[in-house]
Amino acid sequence: MLAELKAVNNFLKTLNKLDENEFYYWNTIHLKTTAFYWASLTSHLLNCFEVSSIDPILNHLETCRQPEGGYGGQKGHDANLQFTLSAIQLYILFNRLEEIDVVKNSAFILKLQNSDGSFSSDIWGEKDVKFTYMGLLSLKLLQKLNTCDIASAQSFLLSCLNKDGGFGLLPRTESHAGFTFCAVAGLVLCGHVFTEKENSLIVDWLKNRIFGIGVNGRPGKFYDSCYAWWVLASLKLLNVPVINYDFVIPFILSCQNKKSGGFSPRPREPADLFHTTFSVAALSLLKHGGLEPIDPLTCLPGSIMNI
């Protein structure tokens, strides 16, 4: 592995030692379940995952498990679709999926599907393409996808496709690369066969996010390292050879903080776990630095998903 990627592991270890006297501890405590997924995925891709970290994370998940199904981001927090998906992904990463209550968790997820096919985040009803992808993927990983209304979910996702080729958070909202990934991946999960017109429109919009030295999420916006993942993963799901975009690698590497080892949105900015994970994931898609391959549909290591 390249030396700069080895430094990422040092960044992950630093985050693991944060205490209550540090700002970043409090800034991330509400999403600790997903933070554990990001860190565990990254270390897997770096081929430096430590088995000793499994039990503490599983102990955390146990405190976040809700009696009616679903997981929260922290002890005492309500169950939420994002954190439930992160918990499922962690159990799969650790090869411990048999420890999750499939019946209760799939029932929790199914209750969050709305009449228009979308999924809500939680019982309070916020819905969009992100949560629809999360709901579909969660059920897929639990082998319960056929228990939801796939046809209406597909219809909802297609209703978020704009004339410019990108997908919005909801119908008739601005196109965004992150939402486009969620919609494309969700449609793949639904078994949607993209028409030639749909494919051409979406691919052209995605390709236009790659410009100059970097990748952005919307027209006219600054480039950002995490969009390398959302854009390239979407292209790969649409059967576009992403290896042709290896010229993006120097941009991603320029976003690595030389002091901490983590990745930031742009060069010379503070690193964070989110951008570190998805920068490494993008480098994995581009087959850079001896990283383990990643499955763009599930955001899990290819060796685990047998791809």
Score class of each variant (00 low, 15 high):
194 F>Q: 02
232 L>Q: 06
66 Q>M: 14
223 Y>H: 12
31 L>C: 10
206 L>C: 13
17 K>N: 11
227 Y>M: 06
55 D>S: 05
294 I>E: 08
214 G>S: 02
101 D>G: 07
93 L>W: 06
70 G>W: 10
61 L>V: 08
172 R>I: 03
156 F>I: 09
79 A>E: 08
156 F>W: 13
229 W>T: 06
152 S>E: 03
92 I>F: 01
69 G>E: 12
72 G>F: 14
10 N>A: 04
153 A>S: 15
246 D>H: 12
13 K>Q: 09
244 N>Y: 07
91 Y>I: 07
8 V>F: 06
230 W>T: 04
200 S>A: 15
209 R>V: 04
250 P>T: 13
97 L>R: 13
249 I>R: 13
33 T>C: 10
15 L>N: 08
188 V>W: 01
18 L>S: 10
12 L>D: 10
299 C>W: 03
148 C>M: 11
20 E>F: 00
222 F>K: 15
248 V>R: 02
99 E>F: 13
276 T>R: 09
234 S>F: 11
262 G>P: 05
288 H>G: 00
244 N>T: 05
19 D>C: 03
149 D>N: 15
169 L>S: 14
147 T>V: 02
52 S>M: 03
22 E>Q: 15
60 H>C: 03
126 E>W: 01
288 H>A: 00
262 G>I: 08
87 A>S: 14
20 E>N: 09
125 G>E: 15
89 Q>E: 11
23 F>Y: 09
307 I>Y: 02
223 Y>R: 09
134 M>F: 10
176 H>T: 02
69 G>C: 08
213 I>C: 08
144 K>E: 15
51 V>Q: 13
246 D>A: 13
32 K>D: 00
230 W>Y: 05
167 F>A: 04
42 T>G: 11
212 G>M: 11
101 D>H: 13
202 I>Q: 01
27 N>K: 12
111 K>M: 10
189 L>K: 08
84 T>D: 06
287 K>P: 04
283 L>T: 07
272 D>V: 06
258 K>M: 11
114 N>A: 11
37 Y>R: 05
156 F>G: 12
29 I>N: 05
287 K>V: 03
269 E>G: 01
18 L>G: 08
275 H>R: 04
87 A>Y: 14
199 N>Y: 02
32 K>S: 03
241 P>Q: 01
166 G>P: 04
90 L>P: 15
186 G>F: 01
96 R>P: 14
30 H>S: 15
74 Q>H: 13
281 A>Q: 05
191 G>S: 07
46 L>D: 05
51 V>L: 04
229 W>H: 06
215 V>A: 01
9 N>E: 11
111 K>I: 05
18 L>Y: 13
153 A>Q: 05
299 C>Y: 01
76 G>R: 00
297 L>M: 10
123 I>D: 08
159 S>T: 02
86 S>N: 04
139 L>Q: 05
163 K>R: 11
235 L>A: 07
192 H>E: 10
225 S>T: 12
201 L>M: 11
4 E>I: 11
243 I>P: 01
79 A>P: 12
230 W>E: 03
180 T>H: 05
16 N>T: 03
117 G>T: 10
131 F>V: 08
62 E>P: 00
179 F>W: 00
21 N>Q: 08
91 Y>E: 00
27 N>V: 02
256 Q>W: 06
17 K>D: 09
163 K>F: 12
119 F>Q: 09
223 Y>D: 06
297 L>C: 05
197 K>W: 05
